[in-house]
């Protein structure tokens, strides 16, 4: 694509590129903690205005008389070098904010589905979402203190994952652990996107 070259009017030699990664999973599973553990900035927090029906506000006129809600969107940043960043977006954990996912997911490199083995079923919707849209994802099983340690094979079976979907046991409070999850995702997403030219 021709427009992959630098934009006219900028002096940058290489085009700036921000790579988007989603952190999904049930409410309270540790998404914000994960972003905070690895982000070089305190997780930035922006909010979206929603109407009372949980639908994005299209027109703010008259909004002062309606009940509105804001949905927090946490994100973190990792600078690889000047002009190359990874952005981690924690997806809203409540079902009524699903409409926001479509926009978040567009152009994303991939997603981490955070799972808590005490309530594995809560990540079913995220797994379904990414499978249906062909967005590469890894399942990161957050090993909370006291949580039962599941064998990855059991998690795979319980979630009905394909043999190729990576499963990583992690502790979202530990930097090394989050790094491993992200490198696994980046590798899986990029290798999987390659045309199968020759056998690997």
């Amino acid at each position: 694509m021709g427009y992959a070259a630098s934009e006219p009017g900028t002096t940058a030699v290489a085009p700036a590129l921000a790579i988007k990664i989603l952190i999904a999973g049930g409410f309270g599973v540790g998404k914000t903690t994960m972003v905070g553990t690895i982000s070089e900035i305190r997780p930035l927090h922006t909010e979206e205005l929603l109407s009372e029906r949980g639908v994005g506000v299209d027109d703010l006129s008259g909004v002062e008389s309606k009940t509105t809600t804001t949905v927090a969107l946490d994100f973190g940043r990792i600078t690889i070098r000047d002009g190359l960043w990874l952005y981690l977006f924690g997806t809203p954990g409540q079902d009524r904010f699903w409409f926001m996912w479509d926009e978040l997911a567009l152009g994303a490199l991939g997603a981490v589905v955070l799972a808590d083995t005490r309530r594995l079923q809560e990540c079913f919707p995220a797994v379904d979402y990414f499978e249906q849209r062909g967005i590469p994802f890894v399942v990161a099983v957050n090993c909370f203190d006291g949580a039962r340690r599941y064998e990855p094979a059991k998690v795979r079976r319980a979630l009905g994952l394909s043999e190729t979907t990576p499963i990583v046991l992690c502790d979202v409070r530990r930097r090394d652990s989050v790094k491993e999850v992200l490198t696994t995702l980046v590798t899986y997403a990029v290798e999987g996107a390659r045309p199968p030219a020759g056998r690997r």
Binding site: L86, L109, K179, T183
Partner: peptide, 23 residues
């Protein structure tokens, strides 16, 4: 910048840079 499908934006060099940067 116009939105670009992510697969097109990540070539081998950027991929290596990202992995190295993360590690």
């Amino acid at each position: 910048e116009r939105p670009r499908p992510v697969a097109q934006t990540i070539d081998e060099r950027i991929y290596r840079e990202v992995l190295h940067g993360l590690r």
